[in-house]
């Protein structure tokens, strides 16, 4: 083989291998999605939204408790995590800039982002659950909020830094005080990016199970009492899917389907928002 033929051969080989790998990876993805949709759709019915958990064998059993619990847990985490994350990100981009303190916060936040979520669950268990003496929705939300903060902080920081400095200068040149420059020029310029970060942050914590096992634990009944254990889709899914009862397993699939669609929807929405602003430019 001449050197040129050899290179062409290696080129082809590499192309074949990388294409094959991509197909294998995608095949698994579609396999998972396919099973999820088939099993999940067949398990879906109105009872799921009407009834709370019941012992195995009961006709009138559903996921209302877990759906509402999930919304409460994620909602409270969002209520705390989003403002804190955005404010901290604003500090980094607009005030701390490249100072030592700001860069240290960025590093710590990055470490937190890659910390296993179960560790954060154990932490909240130690500082909230043990002193209170029992599991609670508060503890679950705190754990999810802690997981959410670094994600939102980082995207806010990045998105604010993408706003051109000349836009800030132009606002200052009109006599705007700094807080107004940030509030009505910088935030507006980064609106879509920050919103996308928030959606991705919410999507990320919505799928968490491990930190909830330590904190909000689980309950098979409908509750809105924040100081007690609270059911969630993820933990309920784990319990039902691993149970030996056919009807509980069905509910587990339904929970998996609903949760996946919720997270998929958030991700798609985030992408659409980014796309629509790019087109606008």
């Amino acid at each position: 083989m001449s050197p040129v033929q050899k290179r062409i051969f290696i080129n082809k080989l590499a192309l074949i291998f990388s294409t094959l790998s991509a197909i294998i990876a995608l095949a698994f993805l579609f396999w998972i999605l396919g099973v999820l949709v088939m099993k999940g759709l067949s398990a879906l019915n109105w009872n799921i939204f009407i009834y709370e958990g019941a012992p195995p064998g009961y006709e009138e059993s559903g996921l209302k408790h877990a759906l509402v619990g999930q919304l409460i847990l994620v909602g409270m985490a969002t209520g705390v995590g989003v403002p804190l994350g955005i404010l901290a990100g604003t500090y980094l981009s607009e005030y701390g800039k490249n100072s030592k303190l700001a860069n240290t916060i960025r590093d710590i936040s990055d470490i937190m982002m890659s910390a296993p979520s179960i560790v954060i669950g154990a932490f909240v268990y130690a500082i909230v659950v043990l002193p209170m003496g029992h599991f609670s929705a508060w503890a679950g939300s705190i754990a999810l909020g802690i997981i959410m903060i670094p994600i939102i902080l980082r995207t806010t920081d990045d998105m604010l830094q993408l706003v051109p400095g000349t836009l800030r200068e132009a606002a200052f040149a009109l006599g705007a005080p700094k807080y107004k420059v940030i509030l009505n020029v910088v935030y507006r310029g980064a609106k879509a990016g920050i919103l996308t970060g928030v959606l991705l942050g919410v999507a990320r914590v919505a799928g968490e199970t491990a930190p909830l096992l330590f904190t909000s634990f689980n309950d098979n009944f409908f509750t809105t009492d924040l100081s007690q254990a609270m059911p969630s889709l993820t933990v309920t899914m784990f319990n039902y899917a691993t149970s030996p009862y056919e009807d509980w397993q069905q509910l587990g699939w339904a929970a998996a389907f609903i949760l996946s669609m919720f997270i998929l929807g958030l991700n798609i929405l985030g992408r659409l928002i980014l796309l629509s602003t790019k087109k606008g430019k």
Binding site: T166, E169, A170, A171, A176, N184, R188
Partner: peptide
């Protein structure tokens, strides 16, 4: 001072808001 001495930059710096709100900003 900056309300008395205004500035126009090299590249246009329209704020991400409506035409009206841009002019009304100051």
């Amino acid at each position: 001072l900056r309300t008395r001495i205004g500035m126009i930059f090299q590249k246009p710096t329209a704020f991400p808001m409506s035409i009206y709100d841009n002019v009304a900003y100051g």
